[in-house]
Simulated assay, not measured.
Amino acid sequence: MSGRTVVITGANSGIGKVAARVLAQRGARVVLAVRDVAKGQAAAGSMRGDLEVRELDLADLRSVRAFTAEFTEPIDLLINNAGVMWPPLTRTVDGFELQFGTNHLGHFALTNLLLPQIRGRVVTVSSGGHRAGTIAFDDLQWEKRPYKPMAAYGQSKLANLLFTAELQRRLTEAGSPVIATAAHPGLASTNLFRSTGRFARLERWVLSLFAQSEDDGALPTLFAAVAAVPGDSYAGPSGFLEGRGAPKLVGRSKEARDPGVARRLWTVSEELTGVTFPRIARMAHESEAADRTGRR
């Protein structure tokens, strides 16, 4: 990874921190994009290598725009890792349901705004929980229905996979060499599970029996980031029910494979965030093609 720049959201803890540590050890310049800069600096201080901490709050589109406006250098690898899971009903700064707003819309805006600088790969971390999700286009923000944290989480993680599929379709159509992939960590013992809420006792029991370590949970992300895999591939653990084990390419739900849903979600996401797929990706390819034609 020497000479390559990597941006990882939520890299101050969990599998994001592990991925940052491993990639920095392999020579990458790693930017930890985190909401809490102090925690990010503490995480970076525990690692070796070329590391930088920058503030990014995915629950605030102004913060996303500020981060991307200041990031002008090329990016070889963007890992959309940050996420929230099962909170009580909460709204982002922009009024979105917190899980959908952070896990999907924040990363949607971040990726598209950074895309003109990305020259390698975009990895988005989803979850096996996507299988329980559905995209409720008539109530994406849980304004009409009683709020169900697990269902809202499933919707956001399903959105991650649909985003990856449609992003790859658009990149291919634009002739861009960038590829979009996705991964899920299986059941990993991270701070996402360390709650004191109504599910805390169940979480601790499940983790004690079935969870793998944060280091092992990061392996699918790293696999999706550097392995020779095609665009729109999805990596996860190879063990029982994809809960743990060495990484491999895995399947996804029927809805996650629906191109019509993916395109509709993309359009809605553009409307909600005010961010669109940049034409510059196509222009850069056209410029390179013209240069090659001229040389011939």
Rank of each mutant, 00 (worst) to 15 (best):
S2R: 13
S2E: 15
S2Q: 14
G3E: 07
R21N: 07
R26C: 03
G27L: 05
D36I: 01
M47N: 03
G49M: 04
V53H: 14
E70T: 09
E73R: 08
D76K: 13
L78P: 02
W86G: 12
P87V: 05
G95H: 01
G95Q: 01
E97I: 02
N103Q: 09
L114W: 00
P116S: 08
Q117M: 03
I118M: 02
G120P: 08
R121F: 06
V123N: 03
V125S: 00
G133N: 09
G133Q: 08
F137K: 11
D138R: 05
D138M: 05
L140V: 09
Q141G: 07
Q141I: 01
R145S: 15
Y147F: 15
Y147E: 10
A152P: 06
Y153V: 06
Y153K: 13
S156I: 03
K157L: 01
A183F: 15
G186R: 12
G186I: 08
A188E: 08
L192W: 11
F193D: 04
F193E: 10
A200L: 09
L209T: 08
Q212F: 06
G217H: 11
T221A: 03
F223L: 07
A228Q: 14
S238F: 00
L241M: 13
V250R: 12
K254L: 08
E255K: 11
E255W: 00
D258H: 02
G260N: 14
V261H: 05
V261G: 01
V261E: 06
S269F: 00
L272W: 06
G274V: 11
V275N: 03
I280W: 07
E286H: 07
S287D: 04
E288M: 14
G294D: 03
